[in-house]
């Protein structure tokens, strides 16, 4: 376990310098005009950054309003019979709700739950596994589709949310299974 962690830590530290070296040196050897080509590619960065702004504003504003209104607590209360059924402690329900909506929001909920119930409690264990196992679906969709100006996202959101629900439920089961009092 420790060994795997050390290996992965090293891999993530070495990955970027290695890629920069590999790309640029290979390009240079293959007689690519590295500087000009790099600058040419980098120009696109600005366009994409500016292009996603309206999509990001729309998405983050709606989600911030939803969070500030306290709607998540109300939905949590309404859904509690369902979570009892799958054995999810009702305390982690706000976490499950927040995770696909907001990265910083779910970070806050996770920290709060671990402060209240302990980092090594079942609730803390489930909440941090939920945080570690999925991305912020709404944010990713807004940024990625926004970057290419796609307005009709078709079935992307429902499919992403179905995947999230599967991940969240798995987190509950696997944590309950592995948790030792």
């Amino acid at each position: 376990m420790e060994l795997i962690k050390t290996i992965i830590d090293w891999l993530s530290i070495l990955a970027i310098p290695f890629i920069i070296f590999l790309f640029l040196v290979t390009g240079y050897i293959k007689k690519v005009r590295v500087y000009e080509v790099f600058v040419d590619g980098a120009k696109e960065g600005f366009d994409i950054g500016v292009k996603i702004i309206p999509y990001l504003v729309a998405m983050l504003v709606a989600i911030a309003m939803f969070r500030a209104s306290g709607a998540i607590d109300i939905f949590g209360y309404l859904l509690s019979p369902l979570t009892d059924l799958i054995g999810m402690p009702s305390e982690v329900l706000p976490m499950a709700f927040m995770r696909p909506l907001s990265g910083s929001g779910s970070l806050g909920v996770m920290s709060e739950l671990m402060k209240t119930y302990g980092a090594d409690s079942l609730i803390g264990f489930i909440a941090s596994t939920m945080y570690g196992s999925t991305e912020t679906t709404f944010y990713v969709l807004a940024v990625y589709f926004g970057a290419v100006n796609i307005k009709n996202t078709r079935y992307a959101l429902p499919a992403g949310l179905i995947a999230d629900v599967a991940g969240l439920i798995t987190a509950v089961y696997i944590c309950r299974f592995l948790f030792i009092e």
């Binding site: 890629i19 790309f23 790099f38 590619g41 980098a42």
Partner: peptide, 9 residues
């Protein structure tokens, strides 16, 4: 910009 430049190379 950094990554898109590298990718282009």
């Amino acid at each position: 910009a950094l990554w898109l430049g590298l990718m282009r190379v």
